[in-house]
Nucleic acid binder design. Structure first.
Length: 377
DNA sequence: AACTCGTGGTG
DNA sequence: TCACCAAGAGT
């Protein structure tokens, strides 16, 4: 492996050359004190001044929701969860079905399954572990989340490394090794940078810096508290970092979704197997999603109920992380006493609210087609 | 180590 | 339209 470029000595001239990390951390915390984002899960400056610590439950809940998810998207979900389940004990006592339905639309549904299991584990032991190793053992809590909760909620000097931090650090030290190969080195540098005082604020400052200044495209280096020591900026290569290994192309998959509606408006939904894609989530029954279109036998075998199925004009299209999907939608009106082979009937609006987005699209297309048919008939 | 696992915003 | 991206974890 070639040696990593390091910050040039001249860039360090204005800081303590013996322990530059301490000066850099101080500069970042000073910036954070002036520019921190106000977020619902953060403790405000006034409360902090009064000695208040963040609520570990809120910190943990926000960190789980924020995994691979934007602040703007998380906001309303976080508010609804806190309103409905104000404590980890309340969340632990909730039916899992309710938690999954409340999570619908946020994606990565293993997070919701693990969230509920984690709440039960934490409640059973009287609260969250206060150290990184203990947190790491909880379901859905990986290296990042354990470090983040330990630092933010419990003031532990843990190395918090998320996508923002990877970007900031690979630029600061001009690390040209592509991710994820560079992760171990990034972690070492973050651990070296993390101060004993205010490690939680330091972690959040790093993420704020990455989110608002050291952005993926067109970073605002002129406003950055680390503009002087940043090696990538000095070399004019900030925007090209971090380097990443190329991703595989997305295959396209096909399937059929079945939307059956009773005279009272209820629609047929089926809870998917707990493992795998959309695990544990409820939506209209489907064929398997395959590379080739499902043949007539596969469609007939997957139909959840005997009915006169009609094809809707539109198809549901959706992009997942690693494949794209087209769902043909078949609709049917069934009798009030219909007995499906699989699944059960729930009010249409409830079904929409609890469905993951891909299946909600199919449901909406089916419901619209059924409305059109009834309008004609 | 490389895959699987969602969704919405952005340029 | 499309690739990239966002406070990653589990296997």
């Amino acid at each position: 492996m070639p040696p990593e470029p390091r910050p040039v000595e001249g860039a360090r001239a204005d800081v303590n050359a013996a322990a530059p990390e301490a000066a850099w951390a101080a500069a970042l915390l000073d910036w954070y004190d002036r520019h921190a984002r106000r977020l619902p899960w953060r403790t405000g400056p006034a409360e902090r001044a009064a000695g208040a610590r963040p609520d570990p439950y809120r910190v943990w809940l926000s960190e789980i929701m924020l995994q691979q998810t934007t602040v703007a998207t998380v906001g309303p979900y976080f508010a609804r969860f806190i309103e409905r389940w104000p404590t980890v004990e309340a969340l632990a006592a909730a039916p899992r079905e309710d938690v999954l339905a409340a999570w619908a639309g946020l994606g990565y549904y293993a997070r919701a399954r693990n969230l509920h299991a984690c709440a039960q584990a934490a409640a059973a032991r009287g609260g969250f572990p206060q150290d990184e190793a203990g947190l790491r053992e909880l379901p859905g809590v990986g290296a990042y989340t354990a470090a983040a909760v330990a630092a933010i909620a419990f003031d532990a000097p843990a190395a918090v490394v998320d996508g923002n931090v990877e970007r900031v650090v690979t630029r600061m030290f001009r690390i040209e090794t592509p991710l994820p190969d560079a992760k171990p080195l990034v972690r070492v540098e973050v651990q070296r940078l993390t101060p004993r005082r205010r490690p939680g604020d330091f972690a959040q400052a790093m993420m704020d810096l990455g989110a608002t200044i050291c952005t993926p495209r067109r970073p605002a280096c002129a406003l950055c508290p680390w503009r002087a020591p940043c090696a990538a900026r000095a070399a004019g290569v900030a925007e090209s970092l971090p380097r990443k290994k190329p991703k595989a192309a997305k295959p396209h998959r096909l399937g059929v979704a079945f939307v059956a509606q009773r005279p009272d408006g209820a629609v047929l939904v089926e809870t998917r197997p707990d493992r795998g894609l959309l695990g544990g989530m409820a939506g209209p029954p489907c064929t398997d999603w395959t590379d080739a279109p499902p043949d007539a036998a596969a469609v007939a075998a997957a139909a959840p109920i005997e009915a006169e199925w009609r094809a809707a004009a539109a198809e549901a299209r959706h992009v997942f992380t690693h494949f794209t999907l087209s769902l043909e939608v078949l609709t049917a009106r069934v009798g009030q006493g219909a007995r499906p082979a699989r699944g059960g009937f729930v009010p249409a609006e409830q079904a929409r609210a609890a469905a993951p987005t891909a299946l909600r699209k199919a449901l909406d297309i089916g419901l619209a087609a059924l409305r059109d048919v009834s309008a004609l008939g």
